[in-house]
Amino acid sequence: MTAAAHLLPGFADPVTDSQAVFRATLEALSRPGTVLEVPAALAPPAPLSPAAGAVLLTLADLDTPLWLAPGSGSEAVIEWLAFHCGCPRVADPGHAALAVAARPGGTLALDIFTPGSPTRPEGSTTLLLEVDDLAGGPPLTLAGPGIDGTARLAPAGLPEGFAESWRANRALFPQGIDVILTAGRHLAGLPRTTTLKEG
């Protein structure tokens, strides 16, 4: 059996689907707190969620070094991304343009990623953080650009101490990483400008 034969398909219509997924991602990062459903059918290999898979197909390519956190990539995921995106994998999260961490459990330090530099803050990592659910978890109050006053988000399954770690990331502004939370077919954005308050 050749590699391609057991490979799961990517988008049914790459042009239209990636445009729709980009718009959802743009909406998520432009309006933190908004939970969006991924507007394309996709069944990526486990353990990647359809939402994270869709965002990767939309944004990743030869120019985006990718880091997969331990436990977030399987052989099948790696093959699937290599075939559909061709993005190089890096062992050091500090060199990643895109990173995926799937239900990391325990802690996930955000300072292992690059926050960009003072003159090139856009050189920071965008982290796809897979959580259990984007609702039903401990409530967070969000504020910052993109939010009219405050917004609420209650993701379930965030890494331990995430709010603390995020505060440190927020303090680096204009440097800092940007996070896209994904769960199943849903996603929400946490750009570096967003402040989080528990409760």
């Binding site: 980009f22 743009l26 939309t58 940007d178």
Partner: peptide
């Protein structure tokens, strides 16, 4: 020509720049 003229690789590059621009309001992303 491709949908909206640009090839998909170029669109991805621009889309990534737009997302970073949104995350750093007012900063000019090359």
């Amino acid at each position: 020509y491709n949908f909206a003229y640009l090839d998909e690789q170029t669109k991805r590059m621009i889309r990534r720049a737009i997302l970073k621009a949104v995350a750093i309001p007012g900063y000019q992303v090359p």
